[in-house]
């Protein structure tokens, strides 16, 4: 029980956020919008206080806050929207916010490719299918979620486990016995001493010369894609071909009657 109480600053905002999602999930009758949004906003602010990125550059930090908040809030709106057309549009908003996060992560090519593939192709195709199959807007099965309580509890457990692991990993890294922690907040980026021997958790030696550090350029991505992962690229092409053939074979024929 004490160990649970120690994690109250992690568990309480998670519980608030999950309760907000649970209140917003489609159900019969009115949903408490105001209470749920208050719960959700307080949960987001509380979590932000715990997992605050250290203020280095206010432009980057502000961009990160904007895109992260956009992604999370649009995701909540997507899974709680009863009209499937609006849910698909909220998913497009999630995609755009995630592309902003890609930009922060020095992946401009990936951001452009994701906008083209997701917002340009996948969301539009989903919208086509919704328009074909369900022209009347929200139907009865959209207005009532399936087992919202059980799913909320499962999501709470999963998220609590993930964030607790993150916190423990970073918290044990800096705080050494009998020594003042260097930073007031534990840093995640320094792995614990017994983990350093893991070859997978080593940062690559990064050169400071700008002509050798090709992270984020199209050249670096292309060299890694067609150099290190050429076999995987061929496999991915084969998977795309097989999926195309499968989709053509599975799709309903006109002779069987159209929609």
């Amino acid at each position: 029980m004490n160990s649970l109480l120690e994690q109250i600053h992690l568990l309480a905002p998670l519980a608030l956020g999950i309760i907000a999602v649970w209140m917003l999930l489609p159900r019969e009758g009115a949903r408490p919008w105001i209470l749920a949004s208050l719960c959700g906003l307080s949960a987001v602010l509380w979590l932000t206080k715990n997992f605050l990125p250290p203020a280095e550059d206010w432009v980057q930090t502000g961009m990160f806050y904007a895109f992260a908040a956009g992604a999370v809030l649009s995701g909540v709106m997507m899974i709680t929207e009863s009209n499937p057309v609006y849910a698909a549009l909220w998913f497009a908003m999630v995609t755009l916010s995630v592309c902003g996060l890609f930009l922060i992560n020095a992946a401009p090519f990936l951001a452009a490719a994701t906008v083209v593939v997701y917002a340009g192709a996948i969301v539009v195709t989903f919208l086509f299918v919704i328009m074909l199959a369900q022209q009347g807007g929200a139907t009865g099965y959209d207005r009532k979620a399936f087992q919202p309580t059980l799913a909320s509890i499962a999501g709470f457990m999963l998220l609590a486990c993930l964030l607790f692991t993150l916190q423990e990993w970073g918290g044990k890294a800096v705080v050494v016995e009998g020594e003042e922690p260097k930073t007031p907040r534990p840093q995640f980026v320094l792995p614990p001493a017994h983990m350093v021997t893991n070859p997978l958790s080593h940062p690559m030696p990064r050169s400071d010369r700008p002509d050798q550090n090709d992270l984020g350029t199209l050249q670096g991505v292309g060299r890694s894609l067609f150099g290190d992962y050429l076999f995987a690229v061929e496999l991915a092409g084969t998977v795309l071909l097989i999926a195309t053939i499968g989709a053509i074979a599975l799709s309903p024929r006109r002779s069987q009657g159209t929609l």
């Binding site: 990160f64 995701g75 999963l158 998220l159 995640f188």
Partner: peptide
């Protein structure tokens, strides 16, 4: 320095997707 925050955002998105997959009937 932003690694931990980005991992938190990724975890939240994943869990939101899981809740949506479990609850939506469409």
């Amino acid at each position: 320095a932003q690694l931990e925050s980005q991992l938190v955002v990724g975890a939240i998105l994943f869990v939101l997707g899981a809740i949506g997959f479990l609850t939506r009937r469409n």
